[in-house]
Every structure is written in C-alpha cells, then in structure tokens.
Amino acid sequence: MAGGLVVEQLLNGLQFGLMLFLLSAGLTLVLGVMDVVNLAHGSLYMLGAYVAATVAGATGSFWAGVGAAVVATAAVGLVVEATVLRRVYPRDHLTQVLATFALILVFNEGARIVWGPQALLLSVPPELSRPVAVLPNLTYSAYRLVVLGVGAGLAVLLFLVIHRTRLGMWVRAGASNRAMARAMGVPIQQVFAVVFALSAALSAVAGALLGPILAVQVGMGEDILILAFVVIVIGGIGSVKGSLVGALLVGTVDTAGRAFLPPLFAQLMSPEAASNLGPALASVLIYLLMAVVLFVRPQGLFPVRA
C-alpha cells in the first residue's frame, strides 16, 4: 500500500480525532464536575453547524459563520444550563438522561421548523478549497489542514486554561471531589455555568468546522454524541488529558479501520465475504477498543475521581 495513502489517512484520523476532542472535552468536564449526563451535547454541536451555515451563507464569510456559531451556541448553552440542567443536578442520572433526551427532541424539531428538513450547505472557504502539497508527492486538503491546526490550537489553549488558571484549578478540584471542593470554597455553581458555556462553544466550533466535511442536518449530533461518550469512557471521566488521548485514539482507529480493513480483508478472503465483513468490523473497531480498554483499566486511561 502506498505510503502517501497512509499519511493521508493518518492526517484524516488526527483531524477527526481533534474535532472529537472538542466535543468530548466539554462532555467530560460537565460529567466530571457536575455529574450531569448531558445527552443534548450533540444538539449544541448541531446548533453550531446550523448557525455557522446560515451566517456564512448570509455574509459570505465562513469565519464570520464560525464566530457567530460560537457566540450563539454559548448563549443557548447558558440558557439551557439555567433553565433545565440546574434543576436536574441533584437528581439521579436517569432523570438527567430523560430531561436531556427531551431537549434533543426539542432541538431537533426546532431546527426542522427554523431551517426545514433539508440538509444545509456549508461550503469550504474559497481560499482553502485547493489542496496543498504536504510532502513532495502528496497533496492534502488545505481546509482539513486548517481544521487540524484550529483543533490543535484549541486543545493547547484548553490545557493552559485547565492547568494554569484559577478557573482551571477549580474545575479540576470539582472533577476530583465535588463535595470537598465546595467545602473549600470553590463556587461550583458559577464554575459549572462557565464550564457549560465553554463546552457549548467548543462543540459549536466542532460542528461548524465539520459542517463542510460531514453534512449539516437534523440528527447529526446523535451519532457523534455516542462517539464522544466512547471517547470519555476510554479517557476516564472528568479528565481532559484522557479525552484528548481517547479522541485521537478513536479518530485514528476509526478512520484507519474504514480505510484499510476492507482492502486487507479482500486479500485474505473471497471478495464477497470481504465486502460484507470489512465495513462491519471497521465500524465495530472503536467499540472493541473501548471494551479492551475497560477490561484492562475499568476507570479509563486517566482516572480522575479521588
């Protein structure tokens, strides 16, 4: 197999992994700090993509779309936190699951009412539409490279916030032991509102940037939400470092599996069997990965809970 293809798929995997990280970092903090299972996280991602597509279509500027998506989604996140989530903190996980599932239905139908049932078109900004040479004989989509760069930059920024600022210290304290953090005077309620808005903003970035690559449509949030949950379970709930490692693992394993397993199987068995088994196993790969990780380390790769 050509080396160029391997590098290309590796880059695709990294890029998808970083976007998964933007989604799962917020999810893991919300779950780790406030112990809230937020199924509606995928809806915020969807909202980000829709707002980006609308504003980019109206202004003609892709980056204005991304900016608007971040601001609008963070605002919606704050409202959702204040009206719904704040009421379900003290309840058990199942009540939170029901409430946030209800939010998914409301968001999905809301999007259908506002934007219609058709998928929206969000196109790559024209200056990034042409491929660039990354290696002497390998060209790669400039847009995907920028997505990769933005994802990596935001990851670094998030790490600085979590590990170098007072807010980050509070967040880590809350994730490690909420009751103790509160007893030591950490304003958990305010910290959580900020964390929730931040996680909404990050998922909006992921939605807006993935919009041109995947499709902007109702239901886009649910499938990726499951992947984000797989990521945070692999990484260890509440750990941003864990969700970065988990996201990169899931992103590369998933992308590589889809690219390389079917041709590999085609060499090992009859074409018919390979065309059946290859894609199935590629889809199952990340769940196998999760099962193996949980078998070896039941608390995930980077356990946080004290």
């Binding site: 379900v88 029901l98 409430a99 209800a102 939010l103 239905l105 409301v106 999905n108 809301g110 009412i113």
Partner: peptide, 12 residues
C-alpha cells in the same frame, strides 16, 4: 417531536 419533547421535559 417538539411536543413529545416538551411533555417529557415536564415529566423529568
């Protein structure tokens, strides 16, 4: 779905 969602939310 919007109304089913709102009812579920109220129950939760």
């Amino acid at each position: 779905q919007l109304f089913v969602g709102l009812v579920l939310l109220a129950v939760a």
